[in-house]
Amino acid sequence: MVKYIVKRVLLLIPIVLGAVILVFTINYFNDSSPAITILGAAATPEKIAVVEAELGLDRPYFVQLGEYLWNIITKLDFGKSYSYNVPCSELIASRFPVTAVLGLLGVIISVVIGVSLGILAAVKQYSIFDYGSTLLATVFSAVPNFWLAMMLMLVFSVKLRWFPVSGLSTWKGWILPLISISIGPISLFLRMTRSSILEVIRQDYVRTARAKGLPEHKVISHHVIKNGMIPVATVIGLFVGISMTGTIMIEKIFNISGLGLLMYGAINTNDFILLQGCVIVCAIIISGMTLITDITYAFIDPRIRAQYVNSGRKKRLKTKTIKGSEGERA
């Protein structure tokens, strides 16, 4: 098992490096110069050239890329923000905790609520609860979270004045942002859990469990839920990513000073290097989360565990493609 984990971590490295190179390259081919951001209205072609030379932007692509990568790996240094004129890593470190807490709370809320509602809906198939929750889930999975955030704000903060319009200064401030982040994933988890559980309930081994004389609640808790959760567990990692990117919008709307608002600022001040840093940090964290889910997945399902422990690459790739298609469906 340790061997497997080490192997997975090693496999992650080229992916993360690739992601850094990709983001850097896209940004490199950006037409507008960061010098304009720094100089502002005072920019003239001569001044721009001077500033670009100071920043080392006139050097070849590979030199710049190499330096950028080296600084990240050795010093966790993502360069200096053009607009704030402080290291990006400091800015990111100061804003990151809020986003991480929001994102993680969002995932926890959506998993807990979505999965339990999904199990209930599946167990009580054809009931009013089942129809109602499935209908609501279908509708809510199509509601854009940023619009939901605005509407919640309009109704509960502006009209009813129950919650503050912006910021996280009191506990009340957290409620609307968390609802906005979670509703979509709750709907997706509900639908996914429901169909997965229904699939399991039809299996022969559930009939075997009933034939053993197990009471229905034990059939569900021992033989249905664990099996039905396996495909759901594989996508939780993906949802950490979705939840974190969802917070970008939500932070902008509720004016919460996390990574999302920092990125919003970076976009609108053309602070590319800061944006680049934020995106890379997000990508690294999300890759890490996916890795953790993969390992957890291997722990839940003995079949997968056996494959990983016994042998090699072919089987691992097989499960990976299965997982890929699950994720795409989500």
Binding site: Q203, D204, Y205, R207, T208, A209, H222, H223, K226, N227, I230, I300, D301, P302, R303
Partner: peptide, 9 residues
């Protein structure tokens, strides 16, 4: 093949 639960010993 299908009568036993794959996740329990």
């Amino acid at each position: 093949m299908t009568a036993l639960n794959p996740v329990h010993t």
